[in-house]
Design a protein around this nucleic acid. Structure first.
Lengths: 191, 191, 191, 191
DNA sequence: GATGAATGAGTCTTCATTCAT
DNA sequence: GATGAATGAAGACTCATTCAT
């Protein structure tokens, strides 16, 4: 099928939205986004039916980017600890490299407009990680807890860690590795 | 003197705000709040100069309530672990008992209108806890990390835990105690 | 009859109104007036049924003061020219001494809420002056024009003169006397 | 390109504003203006950022129209008296023909929102007249007074005259010519 | 009578969305 | 498809006036 409209323009809009939302919150006007994107106000609505739909699309886009960053170079055969460390490092690394995206993601966490479908789509690309976690539970490495909970805990701890990495850039790598040790300790089965 | 400002009405407004914000986000109209509170639209503005000021007031109010809940019965003389457990239990307990307040607090975490003063006022009542943490670090029980980081990590983990306690009420107490063990493991100095 | 309410408070309100209106225009809120007057917001409405009524009252009050200033020492027996000069000097003198009152009076000139009755009441105290003018017309000193027109012309010229007296205080007395000569020339019958 | 801003619509808004302001004062709501203009409430704000800006624009527009009326057919070579008479006649003529505009102009005279820039822009087109007046002073025809004062006096006298022309239309031309004679007498150097 | 909290209609302005060009 | 003017329903906030104290 022929790709309608211009992929470039769509990206420009989402990228502008990221910038604007990071700075002014999800309440920022669409006009600020279109002007940042260098397109007309109306154009936004030829790519997205409504603002809410656009925010949902952005959510999925960012989640995909994040998944990409995390899955690239994923050491499928390494030990569980190493795989988890990869996840941790790539997640926090991505967050530091993409502060706006991460900030927007946080805002979307308390936004009521996210559709269930978006939430589902947002978690889908992390399948590989889930498998690792499943294995970890099965092998009695992790505690016997729902994967979702472990994932959420990791995400929460990572967000906290990133915030401090950003606040004290000189200590960034120390926070990153300590954060991981904390996660590992938290998540592993106790002897 | 004429009718004095009524503490009741002020509370009704803040309480309505909690309800409305929890449901519709901080972007909810003030008119929804005043009507929920059963007062005229203008009345809100005799108690708070602007909407932003009202949100800031609400933030401080909730933080105070939370501090109250956490500090009441604080076992000043108990072991560090027991003190931390008290903190954990009372925090998660409060969050489960006051889901709207907790939700609103989370939204305020990504809200740009919070004044520095409010943030300061919001952390002030947790002094006792801070002291415990300081002692824990000094006694080499906790890892050598900034207190703020430990606090943030705890708060993040607790929020996550509460979410799952709410989702699976039957497992609530299991989540609560496992969550604490995770925190304790994460935060303690490794041998 | 016993004087109801306090004359003092009424005066305080009107005086505050003068001050506030001079600075912020007739659109200024009644609350600004009551607070300047040092009374409660509601008090204003025990002295005046509505804001409009209050403005009308203020108009009459100021006009009376002005009349007082102009009629005191009026040289009833002097020549027409001297009587007119007295009027001119006392009017401009009053305006310079009472800039706020004069400013408010000007604003009321383009205000649509002035009642016909107020307008009538406002001109009444100038009867003596009118008589002078009538005499001047009768004696063929003034041109044969409606008194009202002559009065309006004088008032307009005086307002202009005062404005310049205020702008260039060092030239004030020069403006005052030149202004009068202009008026006299304008108004006298030509040979 | 999309629909460009229409000069027509802008004019419709300013014209409606003139009508509404003349009737109800500058405090009239913008909604009255937009509805009179036959556009949506929001449309007004695509043409003018704020109400104040719109009022300033209207001021300049009216002043320009007035200047146009006064400068068209200005007898550059005629005697000073004839030039002044042209000014007088065209001013009062314009005022009678455009009562709403003139009323609005008067209201703006006591309005505090006029920017300095607008005031400057408003006087600029009257340069030719100023030159005449300068010449008149230089040639010892006019009294030695600041031009601004002479202009203000003329304007004040003209406003008064117009008011009476309007009140007694049958006497209009008599008022007009008498008014001019008064001005001329007032302004000329005395022998 | 004095007070000032309470009221709610009214104000300016914003903004998502539509639609003529 | 792209544009940006047009729309009008909100939204936050103001203010004259009322009324409980």
């Amino acid at each position: 099928m022929a790709r309608p409209q211009s992929e470039d323009k769509r990206n420009a809009i989402l990228s502008a939205a990221t910038e604007v939302f990071a700075e002014r919150g999800l309440g920022a006007p669409t006009s600020a986004i279109s002007s940042t994107a260098g397109v007309a106000e109306g154009t936004l609505f030829t790519y997205f039916k409504t603002k809410d739909e656009m925010v949902n699309a952005l959510y999925r886009e960012i989640k995909l980017e994040l998944a990409d960053a995390m899955m690239s170079g994923f050491p499928r055969r390494a030990s569980i600890r190493n795989r988890l460390q990869h996840v941790w490092n790539s997640y926090t690394g991505w967050g530091i490299a993409n502060p706006m995206q991460q900030k927007v993601l946080q805002q979307m966490g308390v936004w009521s407009g996210l559709t269930e479908e978006s939430k589902r789509a947002g978690t889908a690309p992390f399948l590989e990680i889930e498998k690792t976690a499943e294995a970890a539970v099965a092998q009695h490495v992790f505690q016997d807890l729902p994967l979702e909970f472990i994932a959420a805990a990791m995400s929460a701890l990572a967000d906290t860690t990133m915030e401090f990495m950003r606040r004290q850039p000189k200590q960034a790598s120390r926070y990153q590795s300590t954060g991981f040790e904390m996660l590992w300790a938290a998540v592993c089965r106790k002897k």
